[in-house]
Write a protein that binds this DNA or RNA. Structure first.
Lengths: 134, 134
DNA sequence: CCTAACCCTAACGTTAACGTAAATCAATTT
DNA sequence: AAATTGATTTACGTTAACGTTAGGGTTAGG
């Protein structure tokens, strides 16, 4: 659908289907102030910006962030910080998040290596079985 | 400490302190069959293998895996799968986990880019403030 | 007019991963 | 001997992130 400004809009059901979650979840994110869609009467109307937000929420979740932390990141991103103090606090925040992401990169690298090992042992075993079997 | 075989061992408190978690958590992991330390009387005695396990648990957690999934990975790793069916199931599992990790790598990359943006905007703003201020 | 497919609010239920409190025991320390 | 320290079990409490149920409104189609 499109609204009066000819922008694309979505119903809650459409978004739910697209991202494979339930409407309940989307409403819950709103309750937690991670979304704030327009309304026509009672019905929620999501614009493209809302859709992007939702995508970001789900990405954050995949990375193990809590909804509170994700909200935190949003505020950081939206913030029109104007005092030096605020700005410096923000730089600290970004650095903190960066550290977490670096740690995750390390973790992923190590886990991948272990999966390689498991897989190799597995393939060797399989080859062995096939030899004996034939 | 060392046990009768001259291997290094740890108390629950030592491990808790080392990894900055509570003994309660460690006991809980045991309850969920992620650990199974020796005992002397009632007291738990952790060997180095247990310590490595614990480290792996925490790494899994940082990556957003549930304890059940981590247990799953352990079984996969420990498994002496001997039938072709088991081995193939295992290969499927590793591929599945790999897909998740790849997704996370993507997610991290994107989030890092956004942090770059936030930081850049922030530094610009700061520079601007300093100009006007001087 | 009915019902099917949407939407809504309100509120209680559920699961994972521990936290916390109570009561007890063993080894040191004072 | 008394107190401190660190271990144990048992069991109820807690938080996050929804699931689920109940009750109700509105539009399109048959």
């Amino acid at each position: 659908m499109t609204n009066q400004n000819n922008e694309v809009t979505y119903s809650i059901g459409e978004l739910a289907k697209e991202f494979d979650i339930t409407p309940r979840s989307i409403r819950f994110y709103e309750e937690q102030h991670l979304l704030s869609p327009e309304r026509t009467g009672q019905t929620r109307i999501y614009c493209n910006k809302d859709r992007v937000r939702l995508k970001l929420i789900l990405r954050g979740k995949r990375l193990g962030f809590s909804l509170a932390e994700i909200k935190n990141l949003f505020e950081l991103y939206d913030s029109n910080a104007n005092s030096m103090l605020q700005l410096e606090a923000m730089l600290q925040m970004t650095e903190q998040k960066r550290a977490i992401l670096r740690q995750q990169l390390d973790d992923i690298q190590m886990l991948m290596n272990e999966l390689d090992e498991v897989e190799k042992r597995c393939r060797d075993e399989l080859a062995d079985l096939q030899k004996r079997g034939s």
